[in-house]
Amino acid sequence: MTKQKPIAEGLFTWPAAQPALLGSRCNDCGIVSFPAAQSCMACSGQDVTVEELPRRGTLWTWTVQRFMPKAPYHSDETEQTFQPYGVGYVELPGGVRVEGRLTENDPAKLRIGMAMDVVFEPYRHEANGDEVIGFFFRPAA
């Protein structure tokens, strides 16, 4: 049976009924970092609490990656099967702007300010067949 595992531990809750990205909030200055860190980039404080980030936000800026990156890029694709992918920063209210891949790669369907939801989907397979789960932002329905 195919097993699923997150692309990195601690990046988002997994497995979970309603997975979410994980950030760290500084208990001294209130600033949120993603991914969760052990100290605060804003004030150097080390008293931080890991919390789930909001699942919906707005697209702050975006682009489309048109060529296949070199390593450390690691997907199931080859130069022949590569598909351009969207990349953007999504502003999560009360939290932070998170950079991530977009499920949409058509510039005509991407607009600064549009609502986006974070989703967790299979990204690639390990040699043993396990599915590696990544996080993506999808235009809200």
Partner: peptide, 13 residues
């Protein structure tokens, strides 16, 4: 983290 490059985000472009 390595995941950042694996997902294809480690591009100055």
């Amino acid at each position: 983290g390595r995941w950042y490059g694996e997902l294809g985000l480690m591009m100055t472009t």
